[in-house]
Amino acid sequence: MKNIILQPFTYIISLFEHIGRYFDLMSKTLRSFTTWHLYIGFLPEHMMKLGISALPIVVVTGLFSGMVTSVQTAYQLESGFIPDSYVGGIVCVSVLMELSPMITALVMTGRVGASIAAEIGTMRVSEQIDALETLSFDPVSFLIMPRVISGAIMFPVMVVIADLFGLLGGFFAATTSIGISSYDYVYGLRDWFVPWYAIFGVIKAFSFGIAITSIACYFGYYTTGGAEGVGKSTTQTVVVSCITIVILNYLLAAILL
């Protein structure tokens, strides 16, 4: 009975412990920024890994999110009083501002975040991080910094690619399954397009990139308990990243729009 009453308090204390340790690790990561010469060589490898591993899934999700937006917009506007070009406009705004950054971030959490957490977690439980320390390396600058920087650079690139495929998917669906002319779609898209929409999406992607990679590094770095611990860290990374993304998504919209 006592345990049941105390359980919520234990969770709250544990949450604050995690938040404290996360910011402690991030402050160490920021301080290690000055030792750039140690990790700069690993950046291209991490960027390639992050980009190439996620590219197919980003392309597919981008393409289909544009297609479904196109179809559903046309379904909502089928009264006949609203011009067909609105489909292109609504796809443009939805994809650039919300769908691409959000869906890409959620997909990258599963693909990249989980992979980072599992990799660093395995290094922790197999004493590879201890070995790095005994070889006089700072594991934070060696393992975390290049991954966070790669995330900050590659997530916006991925979102731009998702934007492109989202708009293409919308175009494809509009012209093939809804029967809207390519002229109307492109006209609406160009008419509604404002550069800020794309910039806003890229800012979101940059923030999501840092959040996802740093959360994955945090859970990986503090993994305990062998293979089970690695599994737990990976799950925690995905859950916490997803929650963080939706909260960040709202905060960025509230602040920037």
Binding site: T122, M123, S126, E127, Q128, D130, A131, L132
Partner: peptide
């Protein structure tokens, strides 16, 4: 290290 701790 006990199990080598080689970088995979």
């Amino acid at each position: 290290f006990q199990f080598g701790a080689l970088f995979d």
